[in-house]
Amino acid sequence: MIEIREFTKKFGTYCALDHISLKVEPGVIVGLVGSNGAGKSTLLRSIVGVYEGDGGILTVDGESPYENPSVKEKIFFLSDYPYFQSGQTLQDLAAFYARFYRRWSKEKFEYLSRIFPVGKKQRLSEMSKGMQRQCALICAVSCCPDYLIMDEIFDGLDPVMRQLLKRIVSGEVAERNMSVVIASHNLRELEDFCDYIGMLHRGGIVLEKDLDSIKLGIHKIQAAFRPMPEIEQLKQQLDIVTWEAKGSLLNLVVRGEEREINRVFESLHPIFFETLPLSLEEVFINEMEAAGYDLENILK
């Protein structure tokens, strides 16, 4: 289990992670989303022992990963821009990782090499970005890690490859109880892949819940009123994240159980109202806005 408590990481005077707390249980897929510069990559690098924290606790199976080979052996980090040595082929890459990871599986490597459409003897530098990602993923899975940490893995992969990736990783999770932490801006892909979502903004965790709770706990409401009720009055009864009124039409994003929300609205006798589920992207935007992300100015 990855356990992070009040973890802080600073770069000089800039605080990239500010007292973050997070838990990753075995056999789950956690998605990390957040604004640019929120600290997602910093958190991943801290988990894999690349960065040393400046405060708090970060443990993997009870031990700090920093300068700890026995812990790092269980973790594989797929960074946003995988590093390859010039002239290296997939075969060379495999040989490299096989030397360092005790649990390297040649069979798995051979199997994955056949599934993904990449040449084992082709130079990695001559491959496209997506193909390079595929090669890195093949090696990552072949290392049989307990924890697979991936940063922006979907970048450059075509939709078919994304599905293949998700299928393979999910298979590993199911088969070996592997945990996955994946940071991405591709919320659509995370939506049907992750069990849990952690949302970061300005070095802090804004939201950390399982995906179903997130989706069930926040709703988009479209309602028509004549006359329009007082918003302040509504805010007293509902946890409104955002709202917008256009004439007699009111659009709201509200946290809470659907049944309770419906009850409140019915009591206000609207001309019409409906409750809609939010996509993860909509949840993200609304939560970010609530956390102070200046969407209006950004999207102007």
């Binding site: 894999v48 022992g49 690349v50 300068e67 080979p69 026995s70 790092k72 960074s79 821009y81 590093y83």
Partner: peptide, 18 residues
């Protein structure tokens, strides 16, 4: 390698002390 972030990510994540 220690002057490039990409390679540092790779090598410092390996299960070997610095």
């Amino acid at each position: 390698f220690m002057h490039r972030k990409r390679s540092v990510d790779t090598f410092h994540a390996l299960p070997v002390r610095r």
